[in-house]
Amino acid sequence: MKNSSFMAGAGKALAMSLLLLPAACSSTDSGNDSGIEVLEDIVLDEQLVETSGLYCDANHIYTINDSGNSPDLFTLDTSGTIVKSEKLPRKNTDWESVTADSEFFYIGDFGNNAGKRSDLAVLKVSRADTGDITPLPVNYENYDIAKNEYYAHDYDAEAMVSRGDQLVLFSKSWLTRVVKVYLLDKGQVTPLLSPVAELSGIPGVVTGADFDAQNNRYVIVGYTSNALGMFKPFIATLSAEFDLISTYKLDGYGQVEGLCVRENNTIWLTQESSPLSVAKLIKVKLPE
Protein backbone atom coordinates (compact mmCIF):
# COMPACT_ATOMS: atom_id res chain seq x y z
CA MET A 1 0.00 0.00 0.00
CA LYS A 2 1.48 3.32 -1.05
CA ASN A 3 1.80 5.80 1.81
CA SER A 4 0.70 8.74 -0.37
CA SER A 5 -2.57 6.92 -1.03
CA PHE A 6 -2.93 6.42 2.66
CA MET A 7 -2.60 10.12 3.36
CA ALA A 8 -5.10 10.92 0.61
CA GLY A 9 -7.72 9.02 2.57
CA ALA A 10 -6.73 10.57 5.88
CA GLY A 11 -10.26 11.26 7.12
CA LYS A 12 -11.50 7.72 6.78
CA ALA A 13 -8.10 6.28 7.65
CA LEU A 14 -8.18 8.17 10.94
CA ALA A 15 -11.56 6.68 11.75
CA MET A 16 -10.20 3.23 10.96
CA SER A 17 -7.06 3.86 13.00
CA LEU A 18 -9.14 4.65 16.06
CA LEU A 19 -10.69 1.22 15.65
CA LEU A 20 -7.42 -0.53 14.92
CA LEU A 21 -5.11 0.99 17.51
CA PRO A 22 -6.58 -0.74 20.60
CA ALA A 23 -5.83 -4.08 19.00
CA ALA A 24 -2.13 -3.19 18.96
CA CYS A 25 -2.02 -3.64 22.72
CA SER A 26 -3.75 -6.99 22.74
CA SER A 27 -1.95 -10.33 22.59
CA THR A 28 -2.85 -13.94 22.13
CA ASP A 29 0.45 -15.27 23.43
CA SER A 30 3.71 -13.36 23.79
CA GLY A 31 2.86 -10.22 21.85
CA ASN A 32 3.52 -7.87 24.76
CA ASP A 33 7.12 -9.10 25.17
CA SER A 34 8.56 -9.23 21.70
CA GLY A 35 11.42 -11.68 22.02
CA ILE A 36 12.27 -11.01 18.37
CA GLU A 37 15.99 -10.70 17.62
CA VAL A 38 17.02 -8.41 14.75
CA LEU A 39 19.93 -10.07 12.93
CA GLU A 40 20.37 -7.69 9.98
CA ASP A 41 19.00 -4.27 9.05
CA ILE A 42 19.81 -3.23 5.47
CA VAL A 43 18.83 0.00 3.71
CA LEU A 44 17.53 -0.87 0.23
CA ASP A 45 18.40 0.77 -3.08
CA GLU A 46 16.28 3.80 -4.02
CA GLN A 47 14.68 1.68 -6.77
CA LEU A 48 12.88 -0.23 -4.00
CA VAL A 49 11.42 2.58 -1.92
CA GLU A 50 7.94 1.09 -2.36
CA THR A 51 8.89 -2.55 -1.95
CA SER A 52 5.78 -4.60 -1.34
CA GLY A 53 5.93 -8.40 -1.70
CA LEU A 54 8.81 -10.73 -0.86
CA TYR A 55 9.75 -14.28 -1.85
CA CYS A 56 12.89 -16.27 -0.99
CA ASP A 57 14.39 -19.38 -2.52
CA ALA A 58 17.65 -21.09 -1.59
CA ASN A 59 19.87 -18.50 -3.24
CA HIS A 60 17.97 -15.29 -3.85
CA ILE A 61 15.33 -12.89 -2.62
CA TYR A 62 12.66 -11.49 -4.95
CA THR A 63 10.60 -8.34 -4.52
CA ILE A 64 8.31 -5.93 -6.36
CA ASN A 65 7.14 -2.35 -5.92
CA ASP A 66 3.48 -1.50 -5.50
CA SER A 67 0.97 0.67 -7.39
CA GLY A 68 2.08 3.19 -9.99
CA ASN A 69 5.61 1.85 -10.26
CA SER A 70 7.29 0.11 -13.16
CA PRO A 71 6.26 -3.57 -13.51
CA ASP A 72 9.66 -4.90 -12.46
CA LEU A 73 10.55 -8.14 -10.71
CA PHE A 74 13.75 -7.57 -8.71
CA THR A 75 16.22 -10.25 -7.69
CA LEU A 76 18.36 -9.47 -4.62
CA ASP A 77 21.22 -11.25 -2.95
CA THR A 78 21.27 -11.70 0.82
CA SER A 79 23.10 -8.38 1.25
CA GLY A 80 20.05 -6.63 -0.26
CA THR A 81 21.90 -5.71 -3.46
CA ILE A 82 19.87 -5.79 -6.68
CA VAL A 83 21.47 -8.41 -8.94
CA LYS A 84 18.75 -8.50 -11.60
CA SER A 85 15.69 -6.51 -12.67
CA GLU A 86 13.16 -7.78 -15.21
CA LYS A 87 10.41 -5.56 -16.62
CA LEU A 88 7.28 -7.65 -17.14
CA PRO A 89 4.84 -6.91 -19.99
CA ARG A 90 1.96 -6.11 -17.64
CA LYS A 91 0.74 -2.92 -16.00
CA ASN A 92 1.48 -2.55 -12.30
CA THR A 93 -2.00 -1.46 -11.25
CA ASP A 94 -1.41 -2.34 -7.61
CA TRP A 95 1.07 -5.19 -7.18
CA GLU A 96 1.18 -6.19 -3.53
CA SER A 97 2.56 -9.71 -3.22
CA VAL A 98 4.93 -12.16 -4.87
CA THR A 99 5.38 -15.88 -4.25
CA ALA A 100 6.59 -18.79 -6.37
CA ASP A 101 6.94 -22.51 -6.95
CA SER A 102 9.52 -24.33 -9.08
CA GLU A 103 7.87 -23.29 -12.38
CA PHE A 104 6.11 -19.98 -11.83
CA PHE A 105 6.19 -16.69 -9.99
CA TYR A 106 2.79 -15.47 -8.79
CA ILE A 107 2.34 -11.71 -8.47
CA GLY A 108 -0.72 -10.43 -6.67
CA ASP A 109 -2.18 -7.50 -8.59
CA PHE A 110 -4.98 -7.30 -6.06
CA GLY A 111 -4.31 -4.17 -4.03
CA ASN A 112 -7.74 -2.57 -3.59
CA ASN A 113 -7.77 0.15 -0.94
CA ALA A 114 -10.87 1.84 -2.34
CA GLY A 115 -12.73 -1.41 -3.01
CA LYS A 116 -13.61 -0.26 -6.54
CA ARG A 117 -11.44 -2.46 -8.75
CA SER A 118 -13.02 -4.91 -11.20
CA ASP A 119 -9.74 -6.35 -12.50
CA LEU A 120 -8.23 -8.05 -9.44
CA ALA A 121 -5.89 -10.86 -10.47
CA VAL A 122 -2.83 -12.95 -9.74
CA LEU A 123 -0.27 -12.89 -12.56
CA LYS A 124 1.15 -16.37 -13.19
CA VAL A 125 4.63 -15.73 -14.60
CA SER A 126 6.78 -18.47 -16.12
CA ARG A 127 10.20 -18.63 -14.45
CA ALA A 128 11.67 -19.93 -17.73
CA ASP A 129 10.22 -17.00 -19.74
CA THR A 130 8.95 -14.05 -17.71
CA GLY A 131 7.19 -12.70 -20.78
CA ASP A 132 4.82 -15.68 -20.58
CA ILE A 133 2.11 -14.48 -18.18
CA THR A 134 -1.35 -15.86 -17.47
CA PRO A 135 -3.77 -13.84 -15.30
CA LEU A 136 -5.77 -15.75 -12.69
CA PRO A 137 -8.84 -13.61 -11.87
CA VAL A 138 -9.62 -12.94 -8.20
CA ASN A 139 -13.40 -12.75 -7.78
CA TYR A 140 -14.64 -12.45 -4.22
CA GLU A 141 -18.03 -13.73 -3.14
CA ASN A 142 -20.36 -10.84 -2.15
CA TYR A 143 -18.02 -8.25 -3.66
CA ASP A 144 -20.06 -5.11 -4.38
CA ILE A 145 -18.23 -2.08 -5.74
CA ALA A 146 -21.23 0.17 -5.11
CA LYS A 147 -21.19 -0.59 -1.38
CA ASN A 148 -17.45 -0.56 -0.71
CA GLU A 149 -15.93 2.53 0.87
CA TYR A 150 -12.32 3.71 0.95
CA TYR A 151 -10.41 1.89 3.72
CA ALA A 152 -13.73 0.54 5.04
CA HIS A 153 -14.25 -2.86 3.41
CA ASP A 154 -12.73 -6.36 3.54
CA TYR A 155 -11.88 -6.93 -0.14
CA ASP A 156 -8.28 -5.75 -0.14
CA ALA A 157 -5.30 -8.12 0.00
CA GLU A 158 -1.52 -7.87 0.23
CA ALA A 159 -0.44 -11.35 1.42
CA MET A 160 -0.23 -14.54 -0.64
CA VAL A 161 1.50 -17.91 -0.18
CA SER A 162 2.15 -20.72 -2.64
CA ARG A 163 1.26 -24.17 -1.25
CA GLY A 164 0.98 -27.18 -3.51
CA ASP A 165 -1.58 -26.62 -6.26
CA GLN A 166 -3.11 -23.59 -4.56
CA LEU A 167 -2.40 -20.00 -3.61
CA VAL A 168 -3.41 -18.91 -0.11
CA LEU A 169 -4.64 -15.30 0.10
CA PHE A 170 -5.06 -13.38 3.36
CA SER A 171 -7.43 -10.41 3.31
CA LYS A 172 -6.56 -6.94 4.53
CA SER A 173 -9.82 -6.55 6.43
CA TRP A 174 -10.13 -2.83 7.10
CA LEU A 175 -13.79 -2.97 8.10
CA THR A 176 -14.21 -5.98 10.38
CA ARG A 177 -10.61 -6.76 11.40
CA VAL A 178 -11.48 -10.41 10.79
CA VAL A 179 -8.85 -11.78 8.42
CA LYS A 180 -10.37 -13.95 5.70
CA VAL A 181 -8.37 -16.75 4.08
CA TYR A 182 -9.05 -17.71 0.45
CA LEU A 183 -7.69 -20.51 -1.76
CA LEU A 184 -7.04 -19.86 -5.44
CA ASP A 185 -6.39 -22.73 -7.85
CA LYS A 186 -3.08 -22.32 -9.74
CA GLY A 187 -4.15 -24.39 -12.71
CA GLN A 188 -7.53 -22.99 -13.67
CA VAL A 189 -9.87 -20.08 -13.13
CA THR A 190 -11.41 -20.28 -9.67
CA PRO A 191 -15.08 -19.24 -9.43
CA LEU A 192 -16.27 -16.90 -6.68
CA LEU A 193 -13.88 -17.04 -3.74
CA SER A 194 -15.44 -17.72 -0.35
CA PRO A 195 -13.35 -17.82 2.84
CA VAL A 196 -12.01 -21.16 4.02
CA ALA A 197 -11.12 -19.62 7.39
CA GLU A 198 -11.75 -16.41 9.32
CA LEU A 199 -9.24 -15.21 11.90
CA SER A 200 -10.05 -12.98 14.84
CA GLY A 201 -7.41 -11.65 17.22
CA ILE A 202 -4.90 -10.57 14.57
CA PRO A 203 -3.54 -7.25 15.89
CA GLY A 204 -3.85 -5.23 12.67
CA VAL A 205 -4.08 -5.59 8.89
CA VAL A 206 -2.04 -8.34 7.20
CA THR A 207 0.50 -7.25 4.56
CA GLY A 208 2.74 -10.29 4.06
CA ALA A 209 2.83 -14.04 4.66
CA ASP A 210 4.77 -17.24 4.05
CA PHE A 211 4.54 -20.89 5.03
CA ASP A 212 7.21 -22.18 7.42
CA ALA A 213 7.52 -25.83 6.38
CA GLN A 214 10.12 -26.59 9.04
CA ASN A 215 7.62 -25.74 11.78
CA ASN A 216 4.41 -26.52 9.83
CA ARG A 217 2.96 -23.05 10.33
CA TYR A 218 2.20 -19.79 8.56
CA VAL A 219 4.04 -16.62 9.52
CA ILE A 220 2.30 -13.32 8.78
CA VAL A 221 3.26 -9.67 9.16
CA GLY A 222 1.22 -6.48 9.27
CA TYR A 223 0.59 -3.31 11.20
CA THR A 224 -1.81 -0.88 12.77
CA SER A 225 -1.60 2.68 11.48
CA ASN A 226 -3.02 6.16 11.82
CA ALA A 227 -3.63 9.16 9.59
CA LEU A 228 -0.30 10.72 10.59
CA GLY A 229 1.60 7.89 8.88
CA MET A 230 2.67 6.19 12.12
CA PHE A 231 2.82 2.39 12.01
CA LYS A 232 2.96 -0.30 14.70
CA PRO A 233 4.02 -3.53 13.00
CA PHE A 234 3.57 -7.07 14.28
CA ILE A 235 4.47 -10.64 13.36
CA ALA A 236 2.12 -13.55 14.06
CA THR A 237 2.25 -17.31 13.62
CA LEU A 238 -0.67 -19.51 12.59
CA SER A 239 -1.10 -23.26 12.50
CA ALA A 240 -1.39 -25.05 9.16
CA GLU A 241 -5.15 -24.99 9.82
CA PHE A 242 -5.09 -21.17 10.31
CA ASP A 243 -5.41 -21.10 14.09
CA LEU A 244 -3.63 -18.18 15.73
CA ILE A 245 -0.60 -19.40 17.75
CA SER A 246 1.29 -16.28 18.81
CA THR A 247 1.78 -12.58 18.13
CA TYR A 248 4.87 -10.41 18.54
CA LYS A 249 5.46 -6.68 18.39
CA LEU A 250 8.07 -5.54 15.87
CA ASP A 251 9.32 -2.48 17.69
CA GLY A 252 11.40 0.13 15.90
CA TYR A 253 9.97 -0.40 12.42
CA GLY A 254 7.19 1.03 10.29
CA GLN A 255 5.32 0.07 7.13
CA VAL A 256 6.42 -3.56 6.86
CA GLU A 257 5.06 -5.10 3.66
CA GLY A 258 6.71 -8.39 2.67
CA LEU A 259 7.84 -11.54 4.47
CA CYS A 260 9.61 -14.78 3.59
CA VAL A 261 10.69 -17.61 5.86
CA ARG A 262 14.22 -18.98 6.01
CA GLU A 263 15.67 -21.74 8.17
CA ASN A 264 15.87 -21.97 11.98
CA ASN A 265 13.07 -19.51 12.84
CA THR A 266 14.63 -16.70 10.79
CA ILE A 267 12.60 -14.57 8.41
CA TRP A 268 13.27 -11.73 6.00
CA LEU A 269 11.01 -8.66 5.94
CA THR A 270 10.82 -5.60 3.73
CA GLN A 271 9.84 -2.16 4.96
CA GLU A 272 8.43 0.38 2.51
CA SER A 273 9.76 3.92 2.66
CA SER A 274 7.56 6.48 4.39
CA PRO A 275 8.02 10.05 5.68
CA LEU A 276 9.30 8.57 8.96
CA SER A 277 11.46 5.68 7.67
CA VAL A 278 13.47 4.35 4.74
CA ALA A 279 13.01 1.19 2.71
CA LYS A 280 14.76 -1.75 4.35
CA LEU A 281 15.44 -5.45 4.17
CA ILE A 282 15.32 -6.83 7.70
CA LYS A 283 16.36 -10.27 8.95
CA VAL A 284 14.87 -11.31 12.28
CA LYS A 285 14.76 -14.44 14.41
CA LEU A 286 11.57 -15.49 16.14
CA PRO A 287 11.63 -16.98 19.63
CA GLU A 288 12.11 -20.75 19.74
Score class of each variant (00 low, 15 high):
residue 187 G to D: 11
residue 175 L to I: 05
residue 236 A to G: 06
residue 167 L to C: 08
residue 4 S to Y: 05
residue 143 Y to V: 12
residue 196 V to H: 03
residue 263 E to C: 08
residue 47 Q to A: 15
residue 262 R to T: 13
residue 219 V to L: 11
residue 200 S to Q: 09
residue 287 P to I: 12
residue 155 Y to N: 03
residue 65 N to V: 04
residue 177 R to K: 12
residue 108 G to D: 01
residue 200 S to H: 03
residue 45 D to L: 08
residue 251 D to G: 14
residue 235 I to K: 07
residue 285 K to T: 09
residue 203 P to F: 13
residue 69 N to P: 06
residue 282 I to Y: 00
residue 7 M to K: 11
residue 229 G to R: 07
residue 221 V to F: 04
residue 146 A to Y: 04
residue 56 C to Q: 02
residue 58 A to Y: 08
residue 68 G to E: 04
residue 244 L to H: 00
residue 206 V to F: 03
residue 241 E to T: 06
residue 16 M to F: 15
residue 115 G to I: 13
residue 19 L to I: 09
residue 263 E to I: 10
residue 64 I to F: 00
residue 110 F to I: 12
residue 267 I to N: 00
residue 261 V to R: 00
residue 179 V to F: 10
residue 194 S to D: 01
residue 254 G to Y: 03
residue 148 N to F: 07
residue 211 F to A: 01
residue 111 G to R: 03
residue 238 L to H: 00
residue 132 D to R: 14
residue 219 V to K: 02
residue 280 K to D: 04
residue 89 P to N: 08
residue 14 L to M: 11
residue 200 S to M: 11
residue 119 D to N: 15
residue 258 G to N: 04
residue 253 Y to A: 11
residue 1 M to G: 06
residue 122 V to H: 01
residue 173 S to A: 15
residue 101 D to E: 05
residue 106 Y to K: 09
residue 118 S to F: 07
residue 22 P to R: 00
residue 76 L to A: 10
residue 211 F to R: 00
residue 144 D to Q: 12
residue 217 R to E: 13
residue 3 N to K: 14
residue 225 S to A: 15
residue 16 M to R: 15
residue 222 G to I: 13
residue 10 A to Y: 06
residue 20 L to D: 00
residue 47 Q to M: 13
residue 4 S to E: 04
residue 158 E to N: 06
residue 277 S to I: 09
residue 49 V to S: 09
residue 182 Y to F: 15
residue 57 D to W: 01
residue 264 N to Q: 11
residue 203 P to N: 11
residue 240 A to G: 05
residue 281 L to N: 02
residue 42 I to Y: 03
residue 149 E to D: 13
residue 227 A to Y: 05
residue 64 I to Y: 00
residue 48 L to K: 02
residue 141 E to G: 08
residue 17 S to T: 10
residue 220 I to E: 02
residue 204 G to K: 04
residue 125 V to T: 01
residue 265 N to R: 13
residue 183 L to G: 03
